[in-house]
Write a protein that binds this DNA or RNA. Structure first.
Lengths: 263, 263
DNA sequence: GTCTATTGCGTATGGGCTACGCACTACCGA
DNA sequence: TCGGTAGTGCGTAGCCCATACGCAATAGAC
């Protein structure tokens, strides 16, 4: 069964005393803790480090964000970074929060829980689209960053007039947020496949269709439904970029609407 | 914008000629290609390598699955493995397929698209639950493995009587599959957090609630909805393991039902 | 019985993270 | 005004990783 040390913050990590249970540099980053004012003036700042990391991730993917690489971008030695961040994973968390940013303000003319929730989902998707590397980030502890909390706040507020109880609201947000995230992962995959070999999305899809065709045609009759789908040409052309998202968000909101309707 | 080399199979990888577009060792693994019969008898087999990898992943997480580690488990030298697998990522793909396995047969008394689709989702979840490391696996190219295709086949067949057109069926499967996957990711996170520091799920949640409380209480009035949720005690106790899943799958299926109903 | 494809695997290269400790700096408290 | 000291940047070094390359041994093919 199970087991998966991944993403679990180790025992040894020092914790702050702000009562948050977060690590020291995280508390510092969230402004819960002052950087002491003794010693030499710091030549760097957390912000600069995080910005450098985000820039590298944006142009070369999260895999290119190594301590050495970030240090080089800043013209310092790799070890310098550890004065600001206790481990690379912590830098990742900071980068994640920075890229997530404050949610844009909800327009006043978006009213009613459904429209507001949909707007919220689209806004979230936009953030992911701008930073595809976000969804490649190894997920660690449950998210507890200021910007993330702002998004949650906005999402909860969107459900104000839904009549749902608090616990339900949260469940709905997780559902919608999970959907958005998942959809972007798929998009990022297609994007990666495009960069990797083929060129155009259509070409990638055609190649994929051919692969599946080859795999399913060896044993005829084993994949009837799949071959029917294949025959229908569904995989021959890449969807317009938004098709799957539009479809999915519609279904999910319909499902939530059923719940709200029967309260 | 964007860019994310991750998970993209490189140019240099040798491709088979089976017309699948897959790499040589993948074609071999899928039984589309024979291992030549010259030379010394192989001392290993792909199956043994993959099994060893799966075993390590199961007990120590995907991060512990390195070439050296697998080799040691088999009592061979690391480089031996490269006679069977061209790169570590390929081993991952093989492991993924092996752990996914053939879907269990759909019981005859499960009838109608909704019940069948729900059964399908639960079966999928069960696989993930047994192998939490699966959802930590870096996603690479679009999935094209025999077992994955079998799951797709079963999913499409489940929608036979839905009256949806082929493309829609696929979209529905992606939606449901994505939901399941996402839900398991959350479960894996909680699991990781449990192993990391605290013990019981409740304890983890309480700690999380305390963290959020600390973060939201500095600026009163900035997180009204969130603080209301917090006050409702929603985060104080971990849900029973299935609660979120049950909620989500119900909503998603409700949403699909709306679509099916209006065809 | 030779030929040769294929085997295992040793060596080596080039990364990566990060513990540790040194030399130095500038604020604090007296 | 002037140590004391907590902080600084950063060099060194240890350890783990993936994997290119090439060599000697092997056993089926002819």
């Amino acid at each position: 069964m199970a087991a998966d040390g991944e993403g679990a913050r180790g025992e040894g990590t020092a914790r702050g005393e702000g009562g948050t249970g977060l690590s020291v540099s995280l508390e510092t980053a969230w402004g819960l803790r002052e950087r002491p004012s003794k010693g030499p003036k710091p030549g760097l700042s957390l912000d600069r480090i995080v910005d450098a990391g985000v820039a590298i991730a944006a142009s070369e993917g999260i895999g290119a964000v190594t301590m050495g690489r970030v240090a080089k971008a800043l013209g310092v030695s790799p070890m310098s970074l550890y004065r600001y961040v206790s481990a690379r994973d912590e830098l990742y968390v900071l980068m994640q929060d920075a890229a997530t940013g404050t949610p844009p303000e909800m327009p006043a003319d978006v009213t009613g829980w459904r429209a507001r929730l949909e707007w919220w989902a689209r806004a979230q998707r936009e953030v992911f689209r701008r930073n595809l590397w976000l969804v490649r980030m190894p997920i660690t502890s449950p998210p507890a960053s200021p910007h993330y909390l702002e998004w949650m706040e906005q999402g909860l507020a969107a459900l104000d007039d839904s009549g749902l109880e608090e616990g339900r609201k949260l469940s709905v947000l997780m559902l919608v947020g999970g959907f958005v995230r998942n959809e972007v992962v798929l998009m990022a995959d297609l994007d990666a496949a495009m960069r990797a070999g083929g060129q155009e999305p259509d070409e990638v899809m055609r190649r994929y269709a051919r692969t599946i065709d080859a795999l399913t045609s060896t044993e005829p009759g084993r994949f009837p439904a799949l071959r029917r789908t294949l025959a229908a040409g569904v995989l021959d052309v890449a969807d317009a970029e938004d098709t799957e998202f539009e479809f999915g968000i519609g279904r999910v909101l319909d499902g939530v609407a059923v719940l709200v309707g029967e309260r």
